[in-house]
Amino acid sequence: MTKHLLIVDGMALLFRSFFASAAMNQFIRLEDGTPTNGVQGFARHVLTAQHLMQPTHIAVCWDMGMHTFRNDLFDGYKANRPAPPEEMVPQFDLAKEVSAMLGWTNFGITGIEADDLIGSMVKKWQHDAQMTVISGDKDLLQILNPSTTIAFTKKGYTEYDVYTLERFQKEYGIEPEQFAHVKAFMGDTSDGYPGVKGIGPKTALKLIQDFNSVEGVLEALPTLKAGQRIKIGENEDMLKLSYQLAQIHCEAPIEKQLDELIVPADYTQHLEQLHERGFRLIVKHAKSLGL
């Protein structure tokens, strides 16, 4: 039987679930008052994905704190992100706890982002399993390969914008690993690095289609239009730094073996434990899916 590993960007689903329900003041508190809206939404999302995608293995990747090696490269990295709402703070640890209670394997390394863990898994197991990554982060397009599909969250728990290697090549006209070079030019406002001011997504993509890489564009600088030449020339250091920030690093140590991530064959005990802790929405949802 072909192995199918579902890799979940835990933080992306946790934030998404939190803000979707917090907007309506639905914090779904436990008896002690702890808010659980993000946690319960995250778990229900992954359970639904499991039902839809039928993976044989599951891994959940987490950011561990705000500071990573990218902050050491650039002080402004993610500096514009607001602090999480107070109702969300206790849910970071709780989400990992609930994930483990459901029998899923959590991954998180201080100083390394979830994206880098996901990229490292994809690199490590690309010849051992088919992989589906669930996230909302377009940066992950750069890790696509023949055995990996990326499902970007779209609507609710069931709708995804799914990218395969073939779709990416057809739409972008470049290879996935070149996507970080595109991001280097266009920058990323949510991550707080500017790229080259005045160069947007279309121009950035065209430059990489024509010259393959940041270095290729810099070598071809004298041949570019005057406007582009000036913008890139004035921002060359930030361009090179932006490339370092945009690139997913796929060398993080993944200590587990693939077969340690097998999906639970039976959720009965897991659900009993969750019910005792007061996570009744998760239990109800799992049972509705026949798990």
Rank of each mutant, 00 (worst) to 15 (best):
S120N: 06
T56Q: 01
T149L: 08
K284S: 14
R277V: 09
L221C: 04
G198V: 04
Q257S: 13
T105W: 00
L73M: 15
F168C: 06
L271W: 05
E171P: 04
A226K: 15
K202Y: 03
F168Q: 11
I230F: 04
K225H: 13
G233F: 07
F19Y: 15
L30S: 04
C61F: 10
Q269P: 02
H45N: 12
E234Q: 15
H275M: 14
F74S: 07
A79W: 11
L140A: 00
S190D: 05
E166Y: 09
V217A: 04
F19S: 09
F168Y: 14
L94R: 10
G41K: 06
Q142P: 06
R280S: 13
E272N: 15
M101S: 13
F107R: 08
M1S: 14
G103I: 09
A100Q: 13
S99L: 01
A20F: 11
L13Q: 08
H181Q: 12
A226L: 12
D259Y: 10
M121C: 00
E31M: 10
G108W: 08
E171R: 09
P176I: 05
M131T: 07
L258Q: 06
Y172G: 05
G111S: 00
A286S: 02
E260T: 00
Q169A: 11
D9A: 03
A83E: 12
P264L: 13
D139M: 02
Q130I: 13
S120V: 04
F92E: 03
F179D: 04
V263T: 13
G173I: 01
Q257E: 15
L261H: 02
L30V: 03
F279W: 09
N145M: 02
P146M: 03
R29D: 06
V283R: 06
L5Y: 09
K155F: 06
I143Y: 12
A100L: 08
P201M: 13
F42S: 05
D191F: 00
S213P: 07
G156P: 01
Q178K: 13
K225E: 14
L274T: 03
A265M: 09
M53V: 12
G156D: 02
L73H: 09
Q273Y: 08
N80K: 14
T268E: 10
K231R: 14
A23H: 10
T148I: 02
G136S: 03
Q26F: 12
P90Q: 00
D259I: 11
D93C: 09
N212I: 09
I232R: 05
D116K: 00
I7R: 02
L207E: 03
T48H: 05
A286V: 00
G290E: 07
I254R: 09
C250I: 13
A246V: 01
V89Y: 03
L205A: 11
S135F: 10
F74A: 08
K256S: 08
R29Q: 06
H275Q: 15
L30C: 03
V263M: 11
Y157E: 02
E97G: 07
P176W: 03
L117T: 02
V39Q: 01
Y172D: 03
G76R: 03
Q142T: 04
G216H: 10
S135G: 14
I7T: 10
M88H: 11
V89E: 06
Q142V: 07
H181E: 12
L291A: 12
W104Y: 15
G76I: 07
A286C: 00
R280E: 15
L73A: 10
D72N: 12
I118W: 11
V122W: 00
H45L: 11
